[in-house]
Design a protein around this nucleic acid. Structure first.
Length: 553
RNA sequence: UGCCUGAUAGUAUAAUGGUAGUACGACUGUUUUUGGUGCAGUUUGUCUUGGUUCGAAUCCAGGUCGGGCAACCA
């Protein structure tokens, strides 16, 4: 009965390798550079790498690719660890490319000794010029002719700090005429007299990605080194280094990175948004970062589900952010506690209500039969949402209007009898009468109404601040839109409701959990909450068929 | 005018020479004390031209279009 879910192309490779007995078990790695916060694109890679190991009984390392000391920081290391954990994954080992600096240096020296690497004194401009162009071969300079002994000495001197930044580099000797630019004697070591967040000032030479990454994979005996498509042309170099050094034959496979509508996914751009205060930090709820989504209230499970649904392939893609939101709603619908909050209040007076108050109950979650109920006070004066009343109702509007009846959720059916206005003609309150025998759970009125509204008792309501988020950008394909991406920022991506009225239960609730504010959306408490003010973030709206109807006409 | 890589509904993704399927979206109906949820249904697709074959999304050849590659970044 269990329908076989078809495999993606990487799973097929893994299964074939395992079936052929190529490896006893697989090892993958997630290798971020600690130079920024993780985003939803990284989540795709995390789910892939950790998911593969989990599915096939292997293991996954968390390896920081910290080979460029000037961009990296421990703040990023900590955030990355935190995000991976929060997503629900456990790494077999926490490792750093910088742990291998000694070994990597020795590997490079081996290449020097084999006559496969040489020290070049050219400037970066000269090296670039000598590289040629995609259609034109490069040329080798005189430094390529240095003897092995000379290169050994010079490389050792580079390491010992004899030279300044940029004075010399170590290059690997491959083919200056290769149609693959990356094979034209690529640089594998450069001099940087910079403080490294882990090795301090111990080193002044640092390996380049192409050398460090493959060899780090080899050291860890990574069987399947999975990266994104832009590294495809690097693969021959990856293989070349492993071949020449005879290290563990890790294999690189590439998949298409995630692109999503209405957002940006590059660390450079995200950093720019943070630095230029277009958002409030890396974990701003509008950001595509894992930390932003967490603060916004996206459950980890829904991010995993999303990554699972989008699949793994090699085709460039632009995924509708609506799919992520669908996954978030799907998860939250199952677990969110229902509460009532009125954002834009309109006073309703129940003219025929004689009691002081009464306590009603309402289910915490209709999707969860064991979810229980909470108590809600009802009284003569209530607040409803201002747009749940129309003096002159539109077609198919089945909320409150003069002479029209609605159900107040978990309470009574009311009928609008009168509208009170101020001197300027603004509606200040609505007078209604209630049907005493229509109380929820004990309704003997026999009346059926089409609309059900959320409400709060005016005297019992508590105040809350609600932050409503919308997409950060107002074009679908931000990365490919013309001009500066920042010119497409949605000026209304954050709207704040300062004085929302919430049912009193919300003051007592456990605040780690997600809520659904009835008919408004899913919300989660923000860390800006303090002793005299609750602050909520809107995670995502509910689907709104009426809004769509209104938009159509 | 080089090399690499890709192309299946609006968006993703599957079918690995044998009935083009799934999800999201859209639309319809239904249920509902959330215009939410659930349920049922409808809709739209193999880039192109030729070839191989009983049979092609799949194999072959040409074309078209997209993406990547000339950092002492990763």
């Amino acid at each position: 009965m269990s329908e076989e879910k078809s495999l993606n192309f990487i799973e097929e490779i893994v299964e074939a390798d395992l079936a052929a007995g190529k490896y006893p078990s697989i090892t993958t790695r997630f290798p971020p550079e600690p130079n920024g916060y993780l985003h939803i694109g990284h989540a795709k890679s995390i789910c892939l790498n950790f998911g593969l190991a989990k599915k096939y009984g292997g293991k996954t390392n968390l390896r920081f690719d910290d080979t460029n000391p000037v961009t990296e920081d421990t703040e990023y290391v900590e955030s990355i660890k935190n995000d991976v954990k929060w997503l629900g994954f456990e790494w077999a080992a926490e490792l750093y490319a910088s742990d291998y600096f000694e070994q990597l240096y020795a590997f490079a020296m081996q290449l020097v000794e084999k006559g496969l690497a040489y020290v070049d004194d050219s400037t970066s401009e000269e090296i670039a010029a000598q590289k040629g162009t995609p259609t034109q071969s490069g040329t080798r300079n005189k430094y390529a002719d240095r003897t092995v002994a000379e290169n050994v000495q010079l490389f050792a001197d580079m390491k010992s700090g004899k030279y300044a930044d940029g004075e010399k580099v170590l290059r690997v000797k491959i083919d200056m005429a290769s149609p693959n630019m990356l094979l034209r004697d690529p640089i594998i070591y450069r001099i940087k007299h910079a403080h490294h967040h882990r090795t301090g000032d111990k080193w002044c030479v640092y390996p380049m990605y192409d050398f460090a990454h493959g060899q780090s994979d080899s050291i860890e005996k990574i069987t399947h080194s999975i990266c994104t498509l832009e590294f495809v042309p690097h693969r021959p170099l990856y293989d070349w280094c492993i071949d020449q050094l005879g290290t563990f034959p890790s294999k690189q496979y590439e998949f298409a990175r995630l692109n999503m509508t209405y957002t940006v996914m590059s660390k450079r751009k995200l950093l720019q948004l943070v630095n230029e205060n277009m958002v409030n930090g890396w974990d701003d709820p509008r950001m595509s970062t894992i930390s932003g989504m967490r603060r916004r209230g996206y459950p980890a499970a829904s991010i995993r589900e999303f990554c699972d649904r989008i699949g793994i392939a090699k085709r460039d893609n632009l995924i509708d952010v609506g799919l992520l939101e669908f996954c978030v709603r799907e998860e939250l619908n199952k677990i969110a506690l229902r509460r009532m909050v009125v954002f834009d209040p309109l006073k309703v007076v129940i003219t025929n209500y004689d009691k002081v108050e009464e306590i009603l109950t309402s289910e915490n979650n209709p999707e969860d039969e064991h979810g229980g109920v909470r108590e809600i006070p009802f009284s003569k004066e209530l607040y409803i949402e201002r747009d749940d009343f129309m003096e002159v109702p539109a077609k198919k509007y089945f909320r409150l209007a003069p002479g029209q009846m609605v159900r107040l959720k978990s309470a009574y059916i009311i009928k609008c009898d009168d509208v009170v206005k101020d001197a300027d003609g603004n509606i200040t309150e609505v007078h209604c009468s209630y049907i005493p025998e229509s109380r929820s759970g004990a309704d003997t009125s026999g009346i059926n109404v089409k609309g059900t509204l959320h409400w709060v008792s005016a005297q019992h309501a508590i105040n809350a601040e609600i932050r409503l988020y919308d997409r950060l950008f107002n074009v679908e394909d931000v990365a490919n839109a013309e001009g500066d991406f920042k010119s497409y920022i949605n000026p209304n991506s954050l709207q704040i409701v300062h004085n929302a009225f919430a049912e009193p239960q919300l003051a007592k609730d456990e605040h780690q959990q997600p809520f659904q504010f009835l008919r408004k959306g899913y919300f989660v408490l923000d860390r800006d909450t303090n002793t005299n003010q609750l602050v909520f973030n809107r995670t995502v709206t509910l689907k709104d068929a009426w809004a769509k109807e209104v938009k159509k006409s």
